[in-house]
Amino acid sequence: MRDFDYHLATDVQSAIEALRNSEEGKIVAGGMTLLPTLKQRLAAPSDLIDLGGIDTLRGIAIEGKDVVIRAMTIHADVGASDVVKKAIPALAVLAGGIGDPAVRHRGTIGGSIANSDPAADYPGGVMGLGATIVTDRRTIAGDDFFLGLFETALEPDELITSVRFPIPDQAHYIKFKHPASGYAVVGVMVSRTGGKVRVGVTGAGPCAFRVTPFETALEKNFSPDAIAAIAVDADGLNTDVNFSAEYRAHIVGVLARRCVAALMD
């Protein structure tokens, strides 16, 4: 790892100022992606601005009809939260299945979402639950947030402060994990709110996305059969040494049907 100047930010504004004043600074939240990246010298920032000292960025609360999770809340706290378990149990399952316990004790929701790793769990949850990303200056609909591989709608000096998840009637998340890394080869979050259905997918594409043909069909007939004949287009999906785009496209359908079946029980 190349050396850098370290700054422990005391509040959001001072973090943004430190970032603006740095030559090529990086924000570190939990560091579960960034530190391994630095160790491999895939990145060599001039400055590291740590959000770990900003207590106001931690916490989980119900606000109106939303579960609001502040950006520096660790995965372990979301997974074990009575509030989340009661309001959106699928989100607690998602958070409790990220990485391993040591990673869940450091990794944060804001860091995961800001990074837009194609195999991260939270982006699939954002799309499947229709979450809104709150930053230091605006709110961004989850649907408009993930733009591509490690690419989001955030400005270079913009920080996520919280994520708002509307409470659905029902939701279910299933991840098909890579057997070695534990990352999502494909993860699917299906939710129902009133007559509306959302199907969010992570792992399969360059970034998280929705499968609108599934949603339309499920809104008419909420059963696995309703989507069994709808093929997911493999064009543009991820291919690696283990899993082809066609395989991933197939697994999206399989997991979506399993989510629907689980919600019908």
Binding site: Y6, L8, G31, M32, L35, P36, L48, D50, G52, A76, P101, A102, V103, H105, R106
Partner: peptide, 12 residues
């Protein structure tokens, strides 16, 4: 809390 000490800076 259990953490991986190879993936946190000493200063943190």
């Amino acid at each position: 809390k259990a953490i991986k000490s190879c993936t946190i800076l000493a200063v943190q």
